[in-house]
Design a protein around this nucleic acid. Sequence first.
DNA 1: AGCGGAATGT
DNA 2: ACATTCCGCT
Length: 602
Amino acid sequence: MPFPLPVLFLILILGFAFPEWAYKPESSPGSRQIQLWHFILELLRKEEYHDVIAWQGDYGEFVIKDPDEVARLWGARKCKPQMNYDKLSRALRYYYNKRILHKTKGKRFTYKFNFNKLVLVNYPFIDMGTGRGVPQSAPPVPSGGTHFRFPPSTPSDVLSSSEELRSPGMFSSVARRMARGSVSDCSDGTSTNSELEEAVGAEERGVGPDRGFRGLLPPRLPHDSLFRVYGGGPNPAGLPRPGHRVHPDPMSPFPVSPLPGPGGLLGPTLSPALSMTPTPHMSYTPSPSLSSPMLGSHFSFNTEDMKHYLQAHTQSVYNYHLSPRAFLHYPNIIIPQPHRPTPEKPAAHHLHSLSHSLSQQAADREEGQQHPSPFKFKLQPPPLGRKQKDTGSSLAASSSSSQSSLFTGSLNLAAGPPKIKVEPISDIESEEEVEVTDISEEDEMNHNEGGIFTPTALHHRHQFNNHYQANGTSISPSAPPPHGNPEEDPDDDEEVFKTPATPSSASLAFPLINLKSEPGQAAPISPGGTRCIPLKLRFKRRWSEDQKMEADGEREEAEDKKEKHEQPIIGSCGLPAPLPYFNQRTHQRITLGYYIISESLE
DNA sequence: AGCGGAATGT
DNA sequence: ACATTCCGCT
């Protein structure tokens, strides 16, 4: 083996951090076509449109003052001249089920973003503001006290020579044009999007970078605790926070976004939830370069693999404006020296230095805590989208594991048919492994009966009876949840969002790998208090799930069509993807479905 | 005004 | 997937 085990593990983590999905635009502002809620946020952010749409009322609540105009703008952006508010509102209504938005009842044209669930990793710096009507904006990067800089986001700076790393359209001239809000490619000549274009142009022309952030700030903040990182509230996590918002990092990519999207529009946006829960949304796409080695009894990473993944990660971070906090997940990343990408491929260097400074950050943050540099990760199963449900995702069991045990665990599964017995999960374990990173999870835990987890729960109830019934067997979304969400506005239509997006997360997920634990150590409780279950059980559960999925995956697909609840909106954030293992008999890759969320911040 | 099903489009 | 379009219903 070219690398010692710890290094291999790092490579593995890094490697899995940058699978194909990292390039996928899902939820990313720049890529793909703009989504309506992106656009809404964009408008919200611009003072120019405050007569048309503006934050109003509760946190995350906005009112469309001029529905026709909003529709017109939207139609212009999408080159849909026939757009009107009726259609637009239909689109908005689709967001209800996705829990991006909900309607503020009784208030005309008033909707509310579900920032509890809206983990805009791609908009990590939305600053919802702390100050009662006082527009605030956060520098896009917590530059104060750190060395972090978004590197120059030019293609040559970020992209490697590897073609496969090049995201389509990224950083092209077209992309740059789009980044200024110019999407007037409407071939029908109905380019009516000049407004936004002008607006963005004005921003670019020099109004301070700070200016562009303001529009996104809703007038009030429900809980300081929500935004302790960027919001100006207490900052228990100890993350360096900029003292002055007026002097944003000059290196910030946000004022002039490199993003191709409609305007780099959401550059300086923050995920309030992210502040607390850097919950990456990841769907793992198997990487060929890793699959073959995994089948064998040993890993072999070649330089290209490393380059690929390191660069990919770096690129995805840049492309998607990922929060630098994403790097906190690798506080002690070490790019193996012997195989460090060469200078003409600077991505790894970036990553290296990034992780370096960020590890310092992490060290600062960890000051006074037990473990100065805990290589600890919380893992979360993939969101229960339909796809994931089909492929099996909900039963990610948590575990704390040493490097070697993780490896051997994976390897054992790869090396031979797992001798795993299907057995129900005891609710004790399930419940105890709950990791509430985001207080918004609380409501989910309390209301999983209406959530996306439901179908899975139904399908697997016979198998995981105890677990699911622990939280009630009713799948009625109307079952009023006990009040348990301190951050939920009292006057808000709570049931809408109390629908648990991720009871699975709450009850089954947030597995944790404590990389610091000794080999073989059970590490039942992490320093952060996370309950972990043995690796063996984790795989066992996983296997059960997979077997189950193989059996009735199609049936579920059919039934899932009716299921509208989907995962919380989480942007891709360039974090490690789940570890795959293989079903030896079928030789199929199986995604474990663990997501590294974050270190414990508490 | 607002909801959501259905068909359709990209 | 994420709308767009249409429409019946409340």
